[in-house]
């Protein structure tokens, strides 16, 4: 029972990390069909933002709270710059965007290495996030609990935005049928840009949050990007509820397999399970019902 509880929580918190990264990815990948490999580097930018903000503010707790919105802006602005300078020239060419954004990602990694130096940086955790809280007899690390809550908060914010605002309706209209959306007067260009800002901004937030778990180095984003894409694909492209289910199931599955076997084996089994799942349901857990004719 104790093992069960501990692995459920470990899995949920691993899933929360994946979710935080994948939510932004679902937006950009889902709406625009852009495979943005530089998403991981926006995350890295967020992590370094946390580092810089922490140096400036000088207090770990305040630093984290300030870094979250600043990281959102930094990630978002990077995303807008990438969209305006590169990606908009290659909509409808998904393979090209994959290669180009991968290249942009490498450039950003090297920039980070040149600016901040090669060694990883440590962002001190606030004192109120160190230690753990007992939940059902399990010591849940505060940092992971915070991450879980943050990830759920981001998810709810995005959901509210999509369901309740005019912008959200425009985004959903563009996803479902781009041409028809344009004919009713929605500027899909503007919608694309805003979506990209939001998606990339969420990567920035994820980066800030990840400094609580690991180190801040130039390759921090690259290490998460593949798993985040898997979550998006398994969940069903452009589907937030699918992303949520996929992130937490992969997290929990991985945690239990890892307890029973080892880290490497668990990874292999999870990947295999995903491959088999996609054979059965290539469209993912949920499929978008597009109303486009193409």
């Amino acid at each position: 029972m104790e093992v069960f509880v501990s692995q459920v929580f470990t899995g949920l918190s691993a899933g929360a990390v994946l979710l935080l990264i994948a939510v932004g990815l679902t937006l950009t990948f889902g709406q625009m069909g852009v495979i943005n490999m530089a998403h991981g580097e926006f995350l890295m930018a967020g992590a370094y933002t946390a580092y810089v903000v922490n140096l400036v503010v000088g207090d770990a707790g305040l630093g984290l709270l300030v870094a979250l919105p600043v990281g959102f802006l930094v990630g978002g602005l990077l995303g807008v710059v990438l969209e305006a300078s590169v990606i908009r020239w290659m909509y409808h060419r998904p393979l090209d965007t994959l290669l180009v954004t991968y290249g942009v990602g490498l450039v950003l990694q090297q920039v980070a290495r040149d600016v901040f130096g090669a060694p990883a940086k440590d962002v001190p955790s606030p004192s109120w996030l160190s230690g753990s809280v007992p939940v059902l007899g399990y010591d849940f690390p505060m940092a992971r609990l915070f991450l879980l809550l943050l990830s759920v908060a981001c998810l709810l914010a995005v959901l509210a935005l999509l369901r309740r605002t005019a912008l959200g309706r425009q985004v959903r209209a563009t996803v479902e049928n781009r041409d028809l959306a344009e004919t009713v007067g929605i500027s899909t260009r503007r919608t694309d840009r805003i979506t990209f800002f939001l998606g990339s901004g969420l990567a920035g937030i994820a980066g800030v949050a990840l400094t609580l778990l690991g180190s801040t180095g130039p390759t921090i984003g690259a290490s998460y990007i593949v798993e985040a894409f898997l979550v998006v694909v398994v969940g069903g492209i452009g589907q937030l509820k699918g992303t949520v289910i996929a992130a937490f199931s992969i997290g929990v599955l991985q945690a239990f397999l890892e307890y029973a076997t080892s880290g490497s084996i668990a990874k292999v089994v999870v990947f295999l399970a995903i491959v088999v799942f996609l054979q059965v349901r290539p469209q993912g857990i949920f499929a978008v019902r597009t109303r486009s004719l193409a």
Binding site: V3, S6, Q7, T10, G11, S13, A14, R144, L213, G214, T219, S223, Q254, A255, E258, Y259, S262, G263, S264, K267
Partner: peptide, 15 residues
């Protein structure tokens, strides 16, 4: 216990 090189998920290992 082993984790793949570069892995950053140590929840289960520490458990």
């Amino acid at each position: 216990e082993y984790q793949p090189l570069g892995s950053t998920s140590f929840g289960t290992v520490v458990d």
